[in-house]
């Protein structure tokens, strides 16, 4: 509950709303590029490890490369959406902060909400009244600590869960054959179901996307068009978004 002092809009970080002067700092750029470099290194190590393991279990390098390519192609559609939203956030946070927060765990929705809440504790609103350099730095710090909590949670919980999984695997291998698939279906069924009550257009988006995928998978199976299995997700997303666009504006 602070009343913004507006008498000196000059260089004082407590009043200056020139976020970009701070947000384009070279230090932030270095951190952003380092984060991306580490993600690249991790993927490189994982690919090598997977290829070596593939030899041992009789899975060809060809199949593994195909899996890599499928994943890359499948992620193009979802990436486009992430990019659009990330670009929209640039005015609020500047380029490197967006790269760090959208590049790592967290979504546009999470980060926007976190920044709003953090700014609120200083009596400011996101991108609006009182969104000064000082508020930006405090909000960005809170967002980074909050994002870090997921990493800490993962680092602590994964070894514990792994032990549980290994025990279950020994005691009851049939359960471990069933659980990953069931968990996957459970997660996506409920994530999807959660979209339905939001609006009629959400229902349309889900149904069109599901129908497009069903048709494409049928065609892929029928005509042995395996490439379609890779592109189907991207196409389904675009078709669903196009229909949603008209439903949104027509309704």
């Amino acid at each position: 509950m602070r009343i913004q002092d507006r008498k000196d809009p000059g260089m004082d970080p407590a009043t200056s709303t020139d976020i970009w002067a701070v947000a384009q700092s070279p230090l932030l750029w270095i951190c952003a590029l380092l984060v991306f470099a580490v993600i690249g290194v991790q993927s490189w190590i994982y690919v090598r490890a997977a290829k070596r393991a593939g030899e041992g279990i009789g899975m060809s390098t060809e199949d593994l490369s195909r899996a890599f390519r499928s994943g890359a192609v499948a992620s193009i559609g979802p990436s486009l959406a992430v990019l659009l939203v990330a670009i929209a956030l640039l005015t609020l946070f500047g380029t490197p902060a967006v790269l760090i927060r959208i590049g790592l765990i967290g979504s546009a929705a999470t980060e926007t909400a976190s920044a709003t809440v953090a700014a609120g504790t200083m009596g400011a609103s996101l991108g609006g009244e009182g969104w000064t350099q000082q508020v930006f730095v405090v909000a960005f710090t809170a967002m980074c600590i909050s994002g870090g909590a997921w990493l800490v949670g993962t680092l602590i919980l994964t070894p514990i869960l792994k032990r549980g999984g290994s025990t279950l695997q020994k005691v009851n291998p049939a359960a471990m054959a069933l659980i990953p698939g069931a968990a996957l279906l459970g997660a996506f069924a409920i994530l999807t179901m959660n979209e339905l009550p939001k609006s009629g257009v959400h229902v349309v988006a889900v149904l069109v996307s599901a129908a497009a995928m069903a048709v494409m998978l049928f065609i892929a199976e029928r005509f042995k068009a395996n490439w379609l299995k890779e592109w189907a997700l991207g196409i389904a997303i675009m078709v669903a978004l196009a229909v949603s666009y008209f439903a949104h504006n027509g309704a």
Partner: peptide
Amino acid sequence: YILPAILGAV
């Protein structure tokens, strides 16, 4: 609408 557009297909 990006999330419902992804999830239906997935």
